[in-house]
């Protein structure tokens, strides 16, 4: 068992370049386990890029160069010889806009399960039900599990994506501005869910709304032009920022 004080993810001298244009510059951060870490910063500062480098999703894009180390549970996942799908399985991704897979609601959640374990039908159904209950979607969809997922509302789709992610029992949830495409009520639901889920998962939340970060974060990382300006526990960060740029950002002078 790992203690909660242990760092789940650390990066050492992480650099990312797109088409020879640096996006992430020499980043050294530590993300604590079983807490909610918010990555904040103005748009275009590399938040999403940083997030996607954690589960090596950047590699599917063209002309990307990544150097440095990303240490997850004490293992450098950037070194050669790793089975990348296994790394990704450890980290669920929730994207800005919900992208349900082109299948039924049930199959969306069962998708990862079917890939990883050859479960029998009963276990599979129980697992799917559990995950849908976990995200509070079960009561809304239990009568139409086999409808196309695209018929759900956007907020429901986002919760479905969350259920799909936790179905494969990840350790980390990577959330890329998961509420930015949602109406306020659906956004609130997702926020509450994330707070609930951080008991069992390490949650990393990319957000560009400061207020959201203040509401939910335990630990904050401030990115600006691809560099980490400041990182630390949330109270300290918001109440007593050390860096002048952080102060400026918090007071809305730069965005």
């Amino acid at each position: 068992m790992k203690k909660s004080s242990i760092n789940q993810i650390e990066t050492k001298h992480l650099n990312v370049e797109f088409h020879n244009h640096p996006v992430i510059k020499d980043i050294n951060i530590e993300i604590p386990a079983k807490q909610l870490t918010a990555i904040i910063g103005p748009s275009g500062c590399g938040k999403t890029t940083l997030l996607k480098s954690f589960n090596r999703l950047l590699e599917i894009q063209d002309d990307v160069k990544i150097t440095g180390q990303i240490v997850v549970d004490g293992i450098n996942i950037m070194s050669a010889g790793h089975n990348v799908p296994d790394i990704r399985k450890k980290m669920g991704l929730i994207s800005q806009k919900p992208y349900p897979l082109p299948m039924s609601i049930f199959e969306n959640v069962a998708y990862g399960l079917r890939i990883h374990h050859d479960k029998n039908a009963k276990e599979l159904a129980e697992n799917v039900q559990h995950c849908l209950q976990e995200v509070g979607l079960w009561n809304e969809v239990k009568d139409r599990l086999h409808d196309p997922a695209s018929r759900l509302s956007v907020g429901q789709q986002q919760r479905l994506c969350l259920a799909r992610a936790i179905a494969v029992q990840p350790e980390v949830l990577l959330c890329d501005e998961p509420t930015s495409a949602l109406d306020p009520i659906a956004a609130q639901q997702i926020e509450k869910l994330l707070l609930k889920l951080k008991k069992d998962y390490t949650v990393i939340l990319v957000t560009h709304t400061l207020r959201q970060a203040k509401r939910v974060a335990d630990y904050v990382i401030f990115l600006y032009f691809g560099m980490v300006i400041e990182q630390g526990p949330a109270d300290e960060f918001f109440n007593n920022p050390k860096n002048p740029e952080t102060k400026a950002y918090l007071s809305g002078e730069i965005s």
Partner: peptide, 17 residues
Amino acid sequence: PIALKEASLSVGATKWE
């Protein structure tokens, strides 16, 4: 959309899957 592929990859599916 690339996000759809990312969604599948990030639950641990291989590229072929």
